Amino acid sequence: MARRLSPMGPEFVTSAPVRLVFAREVSAPPAAVYRALAEDVEGWPSWFRAVTLCRPTGGGTGREVKLIGGTRFAETIVAAEPDERYAYRVDETNAPGLRALVEEWRLTASGSGTRVQWTFAADGSAPIRLVLKAARPGMGQAFRDAVKTLDKRLAASRTEH
């Protein structure tokens, strides 16, 4: 059964009780990374292994996401700044214990590429906070793998054009 979460805004990424922040440099330019994040929503499963389904909803104002293991999210886009920032909050999920969840992707030009920073900002029951903090290494690895795969995918598309 879907559970409604608190409707937090993008500022939650700086004030959440649990903040997991990961960053990695990629060779793709910010515009290409932003397009993959915000415009090619249905392409997420091809580069983020934990994501099995990602599709736009509400005419592009939201997303439906499914993860390996069956976790589902109904999300609302809370920030879409081309080539700089893409953020969404979870409105409904089947994950127990969560009260609020916002994810933000920040893009910063770095040489000829991009510094990609992902912030996972959450609130929940005491047990879920502990679980999320303990999951930091695994989430970090998932992020690094995803961004590396995305960079390879974007490089391949650049050479095809």
Rank of each mutant, 00 (worst) to 15 (best):
S112W: 05
K66D: 14
E64Q: 11
R99I: 02
I68G: 12
A50F: 07
V33R: 01
P127V: 15
A121T: 06
V26Y: 03
W118R: 10
G124C: 02
D123Q: 02
T52F: 07
E11Q: 10
R129M: 04
I68R: 15
L53R: 14
R99A: 14
D40T: 05
R49D: 02
R24W: 01
V41Q: 03
A121Y: 04
K133G: 02
A135W: 00
T61Y: 07
G43E: 04
R4M: 13
A23M: 11
T149M: 12
P137S: 03
G138Y: 06
F22S: 04
V147T: 04
S112V: 14
E92K: 12
T93G: 04
P10V: 15
A135V: 03
R99H: 14
E84R: 15
A156N: 01
F12Q: 06
D145I: 14
E42T: 07
Q117H: 06
D151N: 11
A2E: 13
V131G: 11
R19F: 05
T93S: 11
G111Q: 02
S112F: 06
T61S: 15
H161T: 15
R4L: 13
C54M: 12
G58M: 01
A109K: 11
V131R: 05
E25Y: 11
T14L: 15
R99M: 13
L130Y: 06
E42Y: 04
H161N: 12
G62T: 02
R153E: 13
T93D: 07
L37S: 03
L53M: 13
V33Q: 05
A79P: 07
P96H: 05
E42I: 00
L5R: 01
W44G: 05
G111F: 10
M139R: 07
R24M: 08
R49E: 01
A87Q: 09
C54W: 08
T57K: 00
L154G: 00
E25I: 14
A100C: 08
A126Q: 09
S27H: 09
P17E: 00
T119Q: 10
L37Q: 00
L132K: 01
V41S: 02
D91Q: 08
R63D: 08
A109R: 12
G113F: 09
E104G: 09
R106N: 10
T93H: 01
P10I: 15
T57R: 09
R158K: 10
V65E: 09
I128R: 08
S157D: 12
V116C: 12
P29C: 03
E75F: 04
G9H: 00
E42H: 08
S6Q: 15
V78F: 03
A50N: 11
T71L: 12
W47R: 10
E75D: 07
R63P: 14
G43A: 08
F73S: 06
T14A: 15
F12E: 00
L132A: 05
P30L: 07
L154R: 01
A50R: 12
V102D: 03
W44P: 05
P127C: 14
H161D: 13
Y86T: 06
G70P: 09
